[in-house]
Amino acid sequence: MIPVAFEYKKVSSVEEALTSLASGGEGKLLAGGYSLIPAMKLRLNQPALLIDIGDIPALKGIREEDGEIVINAGTTHNDILHNDLIQQHLPFFHEAAKMIGDEQVRNRGTMGGSLAHADPAADWPALVLAADANIELAGTSGKRTLKATEFFTGLFSTELQENEIITAIRVPIPAEGSKSVYLKFENPASRFAIVGCAVLRLPDGRINIAFTGVADFAFRDAGAEKAVSGKTMDDAAMQEAQTAAVVGVDILSDNFASAEYRKHLAKVYLKRALQAVM
């Protein structure tokens, strides 16, 4: 539980953070520290320099802008949980925030940190995927925006480049009459997701379905979406969605849930989620 020695630098702007990242090579951003520090204590991660972005004002806060809810990357889980805009427009984000860790984790951990870390069992990835969010990145060579659906690429890996920072998550406000839900079957030890299922049902009949915890990285389930989108959601459609769900996915297996059981749980949770948005 003792990390390798490292340098520590606190920065006050995104620009300063980017300069620090570009200078040393061995630098790593520190936000809430609730993924990074445990990994460092186990010596799984040994950065030479920690660049603390935890106090950059521009990375904090939630606002409404151009039909989107903009969540700045340094916003904590608890700030999201207690935000009125979120409760009003993105109730499933509100629900998900409640399920992340405990009070301490929610007080420090950030959405940007969670997305960058891309833990296969983290909650936010499922939410940003189901909500068709965009992720804003800043780098030394400028800014770019990625769709959430393009962002996650593998176990703990994303499109984020070494010298880039996530600055904000832009979530389109779902049209009036939308319904959403996030359900999670927790790993009893870590309370991360064994299966997390986020569903957004839009008034035009489209249904977005995203899973986390099931595979190396969170994903949108096109098969399940196709089975139910635009359909009357009767038992048959539900059945079809369950059959189509998590097909062709390489499913995780661990002490608590084998691949077979996880797959079963994904289907059970999909059904519960679909019932919740009926």
Binding site: L42, P188, A189, S190
Partner: peptide, 11 residues
């Protein structure tokens, strides 16, 4: 011992 942390060993 595959569950030698509290992430894996459930108290």
């Amino acid at each position: 011992l595959t569950n030698a942390t509290y992430m894996d060993y459930c108290m």
